[in-house]
Write a protein that binds this DNA or RNA. Structure first.
Lengths: 140, 140
DNA sequence: ATGTCAAATGCAAATGATTTGCAATCAAAA
DNA sequence: TTTTGATTGCAAATCATTTGCATTTGACAT
């Protein structure tokens, strides 16, 4: 269970002012472990009447300081998740279901790639997502 | 050097009618090995006065049959490349420069991941791109 | 506690990539 | 050459996201 106190700390540490909107958005992320988009947060916060523009701005600023990570699900909008532990996703191309996985030997890959590259010597991030059909959609 | 004859064959094989526009678009791809977007093709074909809507439609239909592959460079528009040999890219987050690389142990990864997954057993495709700073941009 | 001020938010409008509807044109099969 | 469905162009629509600007508010100093 995540306490409000923890969320406030996240904001403080990153130099943000503590506002109800930011706390609410952080809370949505701490509830839903899967990557979510602005629209999803907007709907979750219907009662709080948070403007979607504010959500977009918050997502961007949270990503800038590293609170959030942008996840590329090859969907029509931008998805984010808390950047806690390093992991990737499998996405069902039929129903959109997302499952996380930890396996990722990126350091090894990066080493090999940089050894063969004459244009790059610094890698700062990477994308790695698998796409397939979930067991339910295979049957269809 | 790619001959017109080869390009026509690609269209024929995939059940497309042979049109000047499609040949021109294919030719752009055969010249530029790096992933390109609709706007780039549009500019390259200024003389031919190809409508950008047609380019979008062509890109989509080419991707559907597998002539083209959508590459996720995390830029603002959709980039495509000929789906010939399997490879990935390093993208400079500063200047946007793109370099390809072949190293990719995806089968091994897929096996491990599916072994641990209870929701998926079929992977159809994957994304894997590295992001960093090219040697020129590191200096800046 | 209160005033101050930059930061945060809301609202309306703009942006920019991509899509859609529809009419005109064209490639390819008969 | 005729026919017909596919292809293209043009204008307008869409949809996620961004921007400008006025208003509000959190945090710090008084």
């Amino acid at each position: 269970m995540v306490h409000n106190h923890d969320l406030e700390n996240i904001l403080k540490i990153n130099g943000f002012k503590i506002t109800p909107t930011r706390l609410a958005i952080l809370k949505v992320f701490s509830h839903d472990c899967e990557p979510i988009n602005a629209e999803f947060i907007f709907k979750k916060l219907k009662k709080e009447k948070v403007n979607i523009v504010t959500i977009y701005r918050t997502l961007t600023s949270f990503e800038n300081v590293g609170i959030l990570k942008h996840v590329d699900l090859q969907k029509d909008s931008a998805y984010y998740e808390l950047s806690g532990h390093h992991h990737h996703h499998i996405i069902c191309t039929d129903c959109g279901m997302v499952e996380g996985f930890e396996v990722c030997d990126i350091d090894n890959l990066t080493d090999k790639v940089l050894k063969n590259s004459n244009k790059f010597n610094i890698i700062t991030k990477h994308s790695l997502e698998l796409f397939g059909l979930c067991k339910k959609c295979v049957i269809k």
